[in-house]
Design a protein around this nucleic acid. Structure first.
Lengths: 340, 340
DNA sequence: TTGTATGCGTTATCAG
DNA sequence: CTGATAACGCATACAA
């Protein structure tokens, strides 16, 4: 590998001069600048970021840790985060915890040892507390994404889960539905809890009685035991006329189950969910969803993170951004003429 | 930040001893080892990877550069790559070139400056040659993924695009189809060229005449001008009874267009494509696809890369792995009774 | 405008 | 078994 000294030697200057040319710092005569640049070209010199990191005590690296790499919601988050990072002169690395606390811990240790400048993280759930505390202990700037964790105090960007869920429920009610089931994520996740709240409120505000057995707790990640879900659905009496899914992944899994049971959406059962389906939202059966502003999640999250890094001394008060979800009416909800 | 010297001081040993404890090298008495470990715990010491990288002249970092982060095919590739990297003691970083030559160049320069140990890359197409040559020039170990680039010589893992396309076509023919259109990726991409070849062969072997106007060249990435595709489709006379899509993304876009035109799949038009649809393959309308072994692409690609890094001196001959595609028959192909 | 000395945190080498 | 010293490649502070 050619180093700054090799370049310096060949250009008959000191290493410092080369360094100045690279970083555009200090004053340099145009002549030597040109010469140095030429030599760098000739030798295919590439600065060693590792050495730079060591002396500068910063890596200009941000890390985005998400919980499900196959979820289009997070893919869009990643896009927004990437753009914001680039705009601020940072590079962005990704990691995928797969909704798994241990994988998350693994990544945290990677992050610590790599001396990443800051982290934007969607925690796996409340038990992430220990992992996040490790970051805090080492003073790694941190922004939470999509999910709150009781006990941890930091910047955060969230969706309005409660309100979104309520809207989904009320949309169903407006279409004549009364028997509405909920298939939700793990209750150790703040957004799942809020969606449940929104669901309850939606029913309550419309004087519809809540049946506990209409609520099913699964996980936001994929790979469920579909047969269990299937059994639960079959045994519901009277059967619901509509289902609210806690997120897009759950909606897709519900679709599979319904497919197997030869239940048509929306003819026989209506289905709505949180989060859009990305590139596939256009495939039938056109799910009606409460779409979250995924790109903004990533973009604003990184922006807050960069602010925090750059104002490290300033001790800014922690900020909390809550982004509303927007109801995208498509075709998975049937209008019931007679309320049953 | 607490350094190895802080630990050493507190433990009354030299920095070297601490280093030995961390890396489990050399001989150390159990007593001092225990003491050092205890002090490390107490002080929350985390080794500085940056400093390590500098002295070891390696980062234990591999980079996976893909062309479309929203494509489930690449997501699965990423999973395989991640697993293989972990198994070999490397960390994996991701990048997304978005089928854009310049973004690709950006990432290449990142990779160079970060001193990543090796790169697994799906090039954007033949013009990637210059980008790849930059890697070669700096002797960065390199494995190509999914697409060949004329002029570059290195390890590569590919799908059997020609054979896969031929199978798709012949599957359609077996079901009575004769007027089969192809919506393909950019012909500057090797896999697109091979899929075209397979398409041609499939027709030829069955004595079906090829109509050039049945071939549409789009891009494997998303965000097309759907109206152009739509126009093309409408003006075909006689209209095809089936379409082969060059990849999953194209298939989804075709679905959208057909939806707009109120053309039902498979009743009015059959549709098949390359690559599976990931979590959404189970949604209607159950596309019949030539599924590639995405996980193996990533896994084997990284494995080859690690081999190459570790046998750097050995000058292994370049290897080329070609993985067959498997036809997944689902329900997007209609059996025609009379061949039209 | 340019150069010299020094340190960033770690490990390899060699000595004890 | 343990420690002192040098080196990795670069940038900061200070000198010239």
């Amino acid at each position: 590998m050619v180093t700054i000294y090799d370049v310096a030697a060949k250009a008959n200057v000191s290493a410092m001069t080369v360094s100045r040319v690279i970083n555009n710092t200090g004053k340099i005569s145009e002549k030597t600048r040109a010469k140095v640049k030429r030599v760098m070209e000739e030798m295919n010199y590439v600065p060693n970021q590792t050495a730079r990191n060591l002396v500068l005590q910063q890596t200009k690296l941000l890390f985005l840790l998400i919980t499900d790499i196959t979820n289009p919601f997070y893919m869009t988050v990643a896009r927004g985060a990437e753009d914001a990072a680039k705009k601020n002169g940072y590079r962005l690395l990704f990691g995928n915890s797969d909704e798994d606390l241990e994988k998350e811990a693994d990544y945290i240790s990677t992050i610590l040892t790599m001396r990443v400048d800051g982290v934007l993280i969607a925690p796996t759930g409340d038990p992430s507390l220990a992992n996040l505390e490790a970051l805090h202990k080492h003073k790694v700037p941190l922004v939470l994404l999509d999910r709150e964790v009781p006990g941890i105090n930091c910047d955060i960007v969230l969706g309005d889960s409660k309100e979104g869920a309520r809207e989904l429920v009320e949309h169903l009610i407006e279409n004549g539905h009364q028997r509405i089931a909920l298939v939700n994520g793990d209750s150790s996740i703040s957004s799942a809890r809020l969606r449940l709240q929104g669901y309850r409120e939606g029913l309550l505000l419309n004087q519809i009685e809540l049946h506990e057995n209409y609520i099913y707790e699964a996980s936001f990640g994929a790979k469920h035991d579909l047969s269990r879900l299937s059994e639960w659905l079959k045994q519901l009496t009277p059967p619901p006329t509509a289902i609210v899914a806690g997120n897009n992944i759950l909606a897709v899994e519900i679709l599979r189950v319904l497919e197997e049971q030869n239940i048509d959406v929306p003819e026989q059962l209506s289905l709505v969910c949180f989060d859009d389906l990305g590139p596939y939202s256009e495939s039938k059966p056109f799910l009606t969803v409460a779409a979250q502003q995924a790109y903004q999640f990533g973009y604003l999250g990184i922006q807050m993170l960069v602010d925090r890094i750059q104002e490290r001394e300033a001790e800014l008060p922690y900020r909390k951004i809550v982004l509303p979800a927007h109801l995208q009416k498509r075709r998975s909800v049937k209008k019931l003429s007679t309320s049953t």
